[in-house]
């Protein structure tokens, strides 16, 4: 197995994903032990432009692959590019973000080069010469630490926002354009269009972040405040049954036993007391934040973080603080 690491520089909408710098940092953890080099590959429209953005981040070289066949993402085309690079350069590790692209591409590329893959990792390290990847299982109820067996290259997808991104380390990387070698006609699944979310917000059942309001929202227009907070994350706005009954919100966003059952990474309950009807719809959320005036509200029994206070005061400050963080 090789000791060099290849970072897949994911490009979406012509821009390099933020996670790529985090991958570079993770790669450095590996090469810090193995002594290998870290390379990157950028594929698709915008690759060349974006490559310069990570030159000097400790990368030895950056391959830029941008021709007609790979201008848009396809699992087949991109897997072919990765496979040929791994074949040519003998990479031991390929890192990518655990994004919709990384999760789609990684296993296919790994299978093509007879490698192995660990998805959705939150930590990678070298332990006694062997790679150890930590990843959550059972919807985050446990972690496992895995190590590869066999000689194949190891593909690892890493969850965004888990590792501090690499900073500029001076110097520059060798940027080289490379043909994809892919025959466009041979690609059987083609992306024809990217459809942004209707109204800019995902459905509550599909959102990673949900900001929900209860009867304490007092009126419909106050939900704008929750939308503002949700929009920071590209999240959705939800409502308790009481809020829907009171006419503050529409039924399709009702969360609970008789509404939608949701399972986001972050659920912010604003002015929701937490009756079982509501809890039944959101209690499996990974992180629950409760904002309520009443310290004895049952929502606090299920929440991970709670603030006793007036939501009309708390929510705007929280929005402001998080906005600063996300910038």
């Amino acid at each position: 197995m090789g000791k060099d690491v290849l970072v897949f520089g994911e490009i979406r909408n012509g821009e390099l994903k933020k996670v790529v710098k985090e991958l570079i940092a993770a790669a450095a953890v590996i090469t810090g032990e193995t002594g290998g080099a870290v390379d990157a590959v950028l594929v698709g429209a915008g690759a060349e432009k974006e490559a310069s953005g990570i030159s000097g981040y400790g990368l030895r070289k950056i391959a830029v692959v941008d021709d007609d066949a790979v201008a848009d993402y396809s699992s087949e085309g991109y897997a072919a590019v990765l496979a040929s690079l791994v074949g040519e350069e003998g990479y031991g590790y390929v890192l990518m973000g655990a994004t919709s692209m990384g999760r789609d591409l990684g296993p296919r590329a790994a299978a093509r080069v007879d490698g192995v893959m660990f998805s959705d990792c939150v930590e990678v390290r070298i332990d006694g010469g062997a790679l150890v990847a930590r990843r959550p299982v059972y919807s985050g109820k446990l972690f496992v630490e895995l190590t590869p067996e066999g000689d194949g290259p190891v593909f690892i997808s890493i969850r965004p926002n888990n590792i501090a991104p690499a900073g500029e380390s001076g110097g520059s990387s060798e940027i080289a354009a490379k043909p994809s070698g892919v025959d466009r006609a041979a690609i059987r699944a083609i992306v024809s269009e990217i459809i942004p979310l209707a109204g800019g917000r995902p459905d509550v059942t599909e959102a990673d972040v949900i900001v929900s309001g209860g009867r304490a929202m007092k009126e419909e227009s106050n939900f704008r405040m929750l939308e503002k907070l949700a929009d920071l994350f590209g999240g959705a706005v939800g409502a308790s049954r009481a809020a829907v009954d009171a006419g503050y919100a529409e039924q399709p966003i009702q969360v609970g036993q008789t509404g939608k059952v949701v399972n986001p990474k972050l659920y912010i309950a604003c002015g929701i007391s937490g009756a079982i009807q509501h809890l039944a719809g959101m209690r499996t959320s990974k992180v629950i934040v409760a904002i309520n005036k009443d310290a004895s509200a049952p929502i606090f029994e299920k929440a991970h973080y709670g603030i006793v206070g007036d939501l009309f005061e708390v929510v705007p400050i929280l929005t402001e603080e998080l906005e600063k963080m996300l910038q």
Binding site: A110, A111, D114, G115, V116, M117, F118, V132, R134, P136, G140, K141, L142, F143, V144, E145, L146, T147, P148, E149, G150, G152, A290, F300, E301, K302, A303, H304, Y305, G306, I307, V308, G309, D310, E313, V314, I317
Partner: peptide, 25 residues
């Protein structure tokens, strides 16, 4: 594509809700 589980770890999480308090909201 073989791999081996080295270790199973519980999720480090307290069951209690962390109440965030301060004098000023």
């Amino acid at each position: 594509g073989r791999s081996r589980v080295l270790k199973w770890l519980p999720m480090p999480k307290g069951g209690e809700c962390k109440m965030v308090e301060a004098e000023e909201t």
